[in-house]
Amino acid sequence: MSEKSEHSALTEGVYLILISLQVPRHGYAVMQNIEGLTAGRVILGAGTLYGAINSLLDKGWISAIGHDSTSRKKEYVITPMGKTVLHNEIKRLEALVKIGQEERLGVGNEN
């Protein structure tokens, strides 16, 4: 994994795709899951999802696992490398939230 991959922030779309692919899902199911997780705030377009899935496949963060037995749609799942990236991103986000909360408390105390 490159240094950039380890330390760069993921886009919101990629983050949510990796979260969604902790269980095997096809493209449409990923879109629906993301919409559900974010209560409709984030809706991924099919073109955007297609580009993201291809980039994630190229990086080896997800893999294609054949077709769903009922719908014949291609399914994808997160790889161990993708899990590491996701884990690092969650830690990065937690650190950011912590900084935000501490600073906000600081501002509150001054007032």
Binding site: E12, G13, I43, G45, G47, T48
Partner: peptide, 16 residues
């Protein structure tokens, strides 16, 4: 079946 927008994030919109 829901809204139909192909590109929803900045990077894919710029690329398009």
């Amino acid at each position: 079946d829901g809204a139909f927008t192909l590109f929803t994030d900045r990077a894919s919109q710029i690329n398009n």
